[in-house]
Structure formats: structure tokens, C-alpha cells
Design a protein around this nucleic acid. Sequence first.
DNA 1: TTGTTCCATAACCAGAAGGTAATATAAATA
DNA 2: TATTTATATTACCTTCTGGTTATGGAACAA
Lengths: 122, 122
Amino acid sequence: MEQIGYAPPPPNLDAVFAALADPTRRAILSRLAQGDASVGELALPFKMSQPAVSKHLKVLEKAGLVQRGIDKQRRPARLNAEPMAAAIDWLETFRDFWSSSFDQLDDLLESLKKQTPEGDPP
Amino acid sequence: MEQIGYAPPPPNLDAVFAALADPTRRAILSRLAQGDASVGELALPFKMSQPAVSKHLKVLEKAGLVQRGIDKQRRPARLNAEPMAAAIDWLETFRDFWSSSFDQLDDLLESLKKQTPEGDPP
DNA sequence: TTGTTCCATAACCAGAAGGTAATATAAATA
DNA sequence: TATTTATATTACCTTCTGGTTATGGAACAA
């Protein structure tokens, strides 16, 4: 028995969000939250070919969301949620903006009477 | 002055995560966190054509992350972070899995000695 | 050894994504 | 009215994505 692919790369938000953008992959992650699963086990409930699932797993793996093991002929997948924390970290920087969504429309109407204001981007 | 596109659609995680998967779009969102901006203002710092930015804005709009206004010839974009909350909600369901990332490798090694366990998917 | 199970890989395809340049449109300005 | 400004739209191109079938290889089982 072995383990491959040590030292998962630092979370790449591009890859992480892209991986999460597919419903099949999110379902796979949810499934893996209940325990490791082989490719075959994952392929069953989704009416999809086995190679398709292998592809999805590879996308999840490159995003660091899944690690693979080796167990006889199987290559069990295990959830690695750390990149999700990175995604949340990024999203949290916007937290201020969804607490005050009340009079947001009023704000918009108001702000547009003046000219558009400040700001220099990345 | 007017406002268009009322009643933003309920957050679609597919669209939200896909929108977030592009670094230009994340940069646009960060920029908008500092204040509304017109298309031209957004296009400047990114060395990209104006139509490209318009496309990105449309993706963000469909994901509900941005609302557009009308101010004379301008169509200022405003951040709407609510869909981010939905994204976080989904991600938070995995929170258990990134607190215990210590001996995760050991866990993996251990679990693979037995057969793969339980679980029935979506 | 032979077959079977589990998975990966290759080749292929249609459609979506991300970019461009060129053009059209709408509102402000001269 | 003519021009300029701000944005959208169109047409086009290339690359990526998500799926397929077919095939190959490794490990177990008979």
C-alpha cells in the first residue's frame, strides 16, 4: 500500500472555484464527505461513464480538493477540504457587503445622482 | 436615471462559482468593493479591450454578483455580494474537514488497510 | 495461465469560454 | 446638427470543457 502526490500545492483559487463550478463535482465532494470512495462507487449514482468520473476526479485533484490512494486495484478518493478554507477566506473579505443589502437599491439610486467615485484596482 | 434588472435570481452555485473562477472577474469584484465603477473605469487597469470587460460583467451579472445602473451614457456596475453568502453556506458544510488536517495522511494510510467504507451519494 | 475487475489513457466531438476588431447605438457636447 | 463619449453587439478565432467509446494495464481470482 502506498500514498502518492504528497505536499498538495497551495490552493489556486482559479482551479478551486472552477472545480466547484460543476454540479457533478460538488456532488462528488458531498459524497466524499461521508467517506472515501473508489472510482466505481462514485460513478454508480451519476449516470455517467467511468472515464467521465475519472476526469472529474482529476480536476478535483488538481484543485487540491481530493487526494488519491492506492488500495489493490482501487484508487480511492479522499476529500481534502483545505482549499475550501482558502476560498472562504477570499469570500469573507466581502462580508461587509451582504449584511447591508437592505436599502442597497436606495443606495444605488442615490449614488448615481452624483458621479461615480474613487478607487484604483489591482 | 433608472434601475434595471430587479429581483435578482436566487443564487445559482454553478454560475457563482464559475464567475469566481476567473482572476479578472475576481479583480473586478475587489475593485467594486471600493465603490461602483463604469465599464471604462474597470477596463483601464486590466490591459484588455472594453468588450472583454463587458463580457466579464455580463457573466458576473448573470451570477447575481453585480448589478448595473444607468447614469447618462454610463452603466455603472455595483457589487452585490449576496451570492457569495450562498457560496460560503455551501462551503461551510465541509468545515469539519479542514480542522483535522493533521494526521490526515495517517488516517488515509490507516483506512486503506481496511476496505473502503460506507456511504450512499446524492 | 486465464479470465475478471478496476481504473487510466487516448482519440474524438460538440459546445462553451475568453479574447479580439469592427461596428452600432445612445446620450452628452460643441 | 455634427461630434465625441461610453457602452453594447456582432462576427470571428482559438482554447478549454465535459462528455463519449475504445483500448490498455495492473492486480486479484480461478
